[in-house]
């Protein structure tokens, strides 16, 4: 990568922040239009659109975050890792939006109905479990917490994400009727990202990189 880590920190991060905020900004703006009785982009069932949209983005950003490590080893640089915390926190933010959309806009703060859903409906239970498991990760996302826990324990804690994403994927698969492509595509991407983490696969990567390096060096 030809971009310096400093440039990435100074310009890359604000740009990433802006890009990751766009879906949320779109969602909120359209809800405001909808409630004002103006034309909006949420379709004929705004609640359904909003639940799905926020959930889709939470999943996409989670998977995007999991792609950073394989990307880093493929590029042979740690620079992608600069964006990992931001992506994790944005994923958590979209999960919160997802829950606000469901509990406030859809269920209209009917807490009894929410509790019944959590207890009785497996796909809600699964989704809620994934959301709750994200809380300690968001909470301990600061450098201060890395120091306090020690890098090793912090890392072990944050491996929870390997449980959270499958739960979120299961939640997605269960809420669709019949056998639908979309949840399976997301699951396949997750499986691919996990495969890239296998030592065997990583060693393969390194070997090809080692083979490439001399050629790269000989370039003028």
């Amino acid at each position: 990568m030809g971009v310096s880590a400093r440039a990435l920190k100074r310009y890359g991060k604000p740009i990433a922040f802006l890009l990751l905020s766009l879906p949320a900004a779109w969602l909120v703006a359209n809800w405001i239009l909808a409630f004002a009785g103006e034309p909006h982009g949420l379709g004929f069932n705004p609640h359904e659109t909003s639940n799905r949209f926020s959930g889709d983005w939470a999943l996409r950003i989670l998977l995007g975050g999991l792609a950073l490590t394989p990307l880093a080893s493929a590029l042979g640089t740690q620079k992608p890792i600069l964006f990992r915390r931001m992506m994790g926190l944005f994923a958590f933010f979209y999960v919160l939006l997802h829950i606000v959309s469901y509990v406030w806009l859809d269920l209209l703060l009917d807490w009894a109905a929410l509790w019944r859903d959590i207890v009785k409906r497996t796909y809600i239970t699964v989704g809620m479990a994934a959301a709750v498991a994200l809380v300690p990760l968001a909470w301990t996302s600061t450098s201060g917490w890395v120091k306090r826990l020690g890098a090793r324990r912090w890392k072990r804690l944050h491996r929870l994400v390997y449980l959270i994403v499958p739960l979120a994927l299961l939640h997605f698969y269960m809420m669709r009727k019949g056998i639908q492509a979309e949840p399976l595509i997301y699951a396949a991407i997750f499986a691919g990202l996990m495969l890239l983490r296998l030592p065997v696969v990583r060693r393969l990567f390194h070997r090809t990189q080692n083979r490439k390096r001399p050629a790269g060096l000989s370039r003028p």
Binding site: A113, R116, D117, K120, R121, T122, Y123, M174, M175
Partner: peptide, 8 residues
């Protein structure tokens, strides 16, 4: 009175 297993 008869909920769908996944929603009320």
């Amino acid at each position: 009175d008869v909920p769908h297993p996944r929603w009320s």
